[in-house]
Nucleic acid binder design. Structure first.
Length: 336
DNA sequence: ATTAGGTGAGGTATAGTCGA
DNA sequence: TCGACTATACCTCACCTAAT
């Protein structure tokens, strides 16, 4: 605890001794309470500053039962989609006086369970989570501990949870429609794993769009890509080796789309690629990629609103879902 | 002697109450 | 109106007591 020999953290008691007031008066003065004179408050604040007083949050939360912290649990901190989302959420939380604790799960259900336990034992006031969708028991743990929570980016279609998620049927439809509008008819879909709702939904959107345009669905054109893979797109190679013909790529995420673009480039192929997440609108990078995005500020606001609603509720609130509208952002690298 | 269970102190901030 | 006193929040740890 001591930063140097003999020194000890300054407490209210120390300020009380130094000023001659009681600990109670010091606490009230620093809290800017009305029943303390301005003269006393000023004196106390100056002394506290001079002595280097910092509030003991552990003691304060012991007293109040609140820690003013919110855990944000995400599957991949290295993915710009999540890091930009984090930035929005952290900013809004800070404005409301909360500190974020970031926990990364690496899409691993066991790590996710540990992350939720960590959040609970650290007595966070709420949890914002993009679930791995490997296990639902974490939500029993959260509800058993009466913790406000919001799921984002993914959804559980068969159960009601507090959820804010993109309309991924729409995003899948929009990405596919863009490629069709370029005259493409054999669209390779590099999808995410099937246990993730956004993979299922984007696939639904992809199929719906093909159907709407009278294009037959070919299962050979839908493959699962590794969503944690960052440097190359190994799933394309076997498709090329199997001589499956395709004239455009719809990737589950911008991460996969960028890897696919690089793979195409290394093979000397010029094909249109569309991703989802629109990470480039939040990153100042000299890269062009057409993508499906959404209003991320609005999304973060919805998440915080839903969380806050549960925090202040005196009666149990029924879980509900907010769907975020998506839109196409055209930034083509493709040359006709 | 060992184990299980109970008790109290320590740490710090703050709400409520009361006297000057 | 101001400030002091008291109780309380609650977790951890050390210590004590009772039961086996």
């Amino acid at each position: 605890m001591s930063s140097s020999a003999g020194s000890k953290r300054v407490t209210l008691k120390d300020i009380a001794q130094a000023t001659g007031f009681s600990v109670n008066t010091i606490s009230r003065a620093l809290k800017d309470r009305e029943d303390i004179s301005e003269r006393t408050k000023k004196l106390v604040r100056e002394k506290a500053n001079e002595m280097g007083y910092l509030t003991d949050m552990v003691a304060a939360s012991m007293r109040s039962g609140k820690t003013n912290t919110v855990a944000i649990i995400i599957p991949d901190i290295a993915n710009p989609f999540f890091s930009t989302q984090l930035k929005e959420l952290d900013g809004l939380l800070r404005a409301k006086g909360y500190t974020s604790i970031i926990l990364n799960t690496d899409e691993d259900g066991e790590i996710e369970l540990e992350a939720v336990k960590t959040a609970i034992i650290r007595k966070v006031d709420g949890i914002i989570i993009c679930p791995t969708q490997h296990r639902e028991d974490i939500f029993k743990l959260i509800s058993d501990n009466a913790l406000p929570y919001v799921i984002f980016a993914r959804r559980f279609p068969l159960r009601n949870f507090f959820t804010v998620a993109w309309d991924d049927v729409q995003s899948g439809y929009q990405a596919t429609e863009h490629l069709l509008s370029l005259g493409k008819r054999r669209i390779l879909f590099l999808n995410g794993p099937p246990h993730i709702s956004s993979s299922v939904d984007r696939f639904t959107g992809y199929c719906a769009c093909l159907r709407a345009y009278g294009i037959p669905y070919d299962p050979a054109l839908v493959v699962e890509a590794d969503i944690l893979e960052t440097d190359h797109c190994s799933c394309i190679k076997p498709i090329l080796e199997a001589h499956v013909q395709f004239d455009g790529i719809f990737a589950f995420s911008d991460f996969i789309a960028l890897a696919a673009l690089e793979t195409l480039e290394s093979l000397g192929l010029n094909l249109p690629v569309v991703g989802v997440d629109d990470i480039l609108s939040n990153l100042n990078l000299p890269i062009r990629l057409t993508s499906v995005g959404a209003d991320k500020k609005h999304e973060a606001y919805c998440i915080l609103h839903m969380l806050h609603e549960q925090m202040v509720a005196t009666h149990p609130v029924t879980p509900y879902m907010v769907k975020i509208e998506t839109h196409l952002v055209v930034r083509d690298t493709y040359k006709k």
